[in-house]
Amino acid sequence: MSALDSIAIAVEVPRLAQEWGNALPILHEIRHGLERLAATGEPTLIDLRAIPFGPGDEARLLERLGRGEVEARIHALGETLIRETAIPAVWLVDFLNAEGERIALHLQIDRIPGLLMTQPEDLAEAPARLDRLLKELAGGGEAA
């Protein structure tokens, strides 16, 4: 206990409910992206870290977009959380580092986020990898 404790401190609650008006344009951009995807198949990427959001803007935007049916996790260089929002074809891709801190946050408007797909190089290597496994199994079988 020190003399500091006798100082009365009034804690003021910040007014986070305030609208800063920077989330609405993103919703419009998403709408344009959806139209483009439907018409030409061209996906859209929105880097949410490049938007000058006010306090709480980002959280409110994500809350409004809601949750859809799909959720996925990628374990590579830390986790990447991918989830469909309540609006079909609008995906939230949350890049985390090994410590679980966010290093990038994207909105992707696509049928499926590119990162989820098997990468062509990996596909090319896949048969060889399976061959190795088969060989191992065959070798192991002989030994057993």
Binding site: I74, A76, L77, T80, F95, G114, L115, E121, D122
Partner: peptide, 8 residues
Amino acid sequence: VSRRGFLK
């Protein structure tokens, strides 16, 4: 670092 990791 895997390919997905590299893309990330």
